[in-house]
Amino acid sequence: MPLRESASVPRRSVMTPLEPVGPRTRWLLGVAFFVLFVAVWAFFTLGGYVSPTFLASPVTMVKEAVLLFTEYGFIGDIGMTVWRVFGGFLLAAVIAVPLGILMGAYKPIEAFLEPFVSFCRYLPASAFIPLLILWAGIGEAQKLLVIFIGSVFQIILMVAVTVGSARKDLVEAAYTLGAGGGGIVRRVLIPGAAPGIAETLRLVLGWAWTYVIVAELIGSSSGIGHMITDSQALLNTGQIIFGIIVIGLIGLVSDFLFKAVNRRLFAWASL
């Protein structure tokens, strides 16, 4: 009796949909894109296809970067920008996370606050700058408040959604075991939502970097945004591009650090 032929299983390749790639391959592909990007950039600028007035070449950008660090104290500008981002972001997180937990856990509080928070999160933080200058001047408080306004309402809603999507069976089991309302929040909702809250904070931190540049473009005497504004007045596209790249690099490093901390604190969440 002939044996039944087994169904053939199609071979998978790296381009198979949803097929994961190894860490080494991921890093190589990520670096390859940056190499390709710089190569295309160099081709058009060094080849004379784009005027240096509109786009500096990679070589010119590197020269301007050296000048920024050696003659213009750019490291101080970087430090001020980092301080403003994390200062405004931490202020927003300290206020927004507890409010988000309360909104997600208690539906009357959500009904009371959600319309106002949803309204405010659509308001651009840059629109508040004239008012903030009137209220707080052009010092550090104004810049921290721009980042705070741009971050706080986003965090509140995202945390509320994360807490409110807790598994109902776990909540009912806790009630069966005699837990009260406060115990449900402390022992079920917050621990279950903690990885999602951490991921929310990581995402909003990336948005905070966009708000700080807006805050530094007006009434600022230091920071990366201030340097970009000065370079724009001088048509120095090399310094402008380098400032943008520095922002991206710092944001990328902070994102990787945030991911590493989240994986260490909530390793069980990825199981």
Rank of each mutant, 00 (worst) to 15 (best):
W83L: 15
F89M: 08
E140A: 15
T81M: 02
V97E: 02
G88S: 01
V66K: 00
F148L: 14
E64G: 05
L68C: 04
F112H: 10
G88W: 05
L102R: 03
K107P: 08
W83M: 15
V85R: 01
W135Y: 13
G150T: 08
L131E: 07
A141K: 15
I78S: 00
F116I: 15
F89I: 00
G76N: 14
V152G: 05
Q142F: 14
I95D: 04
A65F: 08
V85Q: 00
I101T: 02
F119A: 13
L131W: 13
V94Q: 05
L68Q: 05
F153G: 04
V85P: 01
E71H: 11
L68I: 11
E140S: 14
Q154D: 11
P98A: 02
L90R: 01
E71G: 03
Y106R: 12
V146K: 09
A136D: 11
V62C: 07
G87T: 08
G104S: 04
F153D: 02
W83E: 14
F119P: 11
S118W: 11
M80P: 03
P124D: 03
G100H: 02
G139E: 13
F89P: 00
A65T: 08
A125L: 09
V97K: 06
V146G: 10
A93E: 00
F86M: 08
L113W: 14
M61D: 01
T70C: 05
S151C: 12
V82H: 01
G79V: 10
P115G: 10
I109F: 12
L134E: 13
Q154T: 11
F86C: 02
F119H: 10
A125D: 06
V62R: 00
L145P: 05
G100W: 01
G79Y: 07
I101S: 00
F128R: 07
G137S: 11
A96M: 06
E110N: 12
V152A: 07
M103G: 04
P130D: 09
L144A: 09
V85F: 03
L67A: 12
I95G: 03
I95R: 03
P130V: 09
G79F: 07
V85N: 02
Y122G: 15
L134M: 15
A93D: 02
F128Y: 14
L144D: 08
L102C: 07
A92K: 03
F86T: 07
L91N: 00
E110L: 10
A96P: 01
K143I: 12
S118V: 13
G100A: 08
L113M: 14
F74K: 01
M103D: 01
G88L: 03
R84T: 04
E110Y: 13
Q154R: 12
L113I: 14
